[in-house]
């Protein structure tokens, strides 16, 4: 199963980025093979508006089944849901720790947006 994780850096020891739309990187992990790939989110990081929507669309294009992040606003949630991606909310920690928690079934699945949108 392929999973995307919002990350502040480029490797498994980087910290989880609690932001979704303006996350620094998306790291895609294959839970079976352990293989990682990194996707820069710089373009959305500086988006004039709708960073969450754009990030949702980016993640939808990464061919993943789940997303692990800190917070998701209503518009990003709508895009991810439409793309059939399940959202899991993780506490602070590294990418590797978050992935382990996910595999152990310790992460809470988000069934609605958990933060307000920014309205810009």
């Amino acid at each position: 199963m392929r999973v995307a994780i919002t990350s502040q850096g480029r490797d498994r020891d980087s910290l989880l980025d609690r932001r979704f739309g303006r996350a620094a990187f998306f790291i895609v992990a294959d839970t079976e093979t352990g293989e990682l790939s990194v996707h820069d989110n710089a373009q959305n990081l500086n988006a004039a508006q709708g960073a969450g929507i754009q990030a949702g669309s980016t993640v939808a294009g990464l061919d993943v089944e789940a997303l692990i992040t800190g917070n998701v606003g209503p518009k990003a949630y709508a895009v991810l849901k439409a793309a059939g991606i399940r959202i899991y909310l993780a506490p602070d920690g590294t990418v590797a720790q978050s992935l382990q928690r996910f595999k152990d079934g310790l992460l809470e699945e988000s069934l609605s947006a958990n933060v307000e949108g920014h309205w810009v």
């Binding site: 508006q49 709708g50 929507i53 754009q54 939808a60 518009k75 895009v79 439409a82 793309a83």
Partner: peptide
């Protein structure tokens, strides 16, 4: 669209009229 008011996914187009 620079306002993210329309976004194209694999199987559908979503619009965000308020943006």
């Amino acid at each position: 669209c620079r306002y993210s008011a329309i976004v194209v996914l694999k199987d559908r187009v979503m619009t965000f009229p308020e943006l």
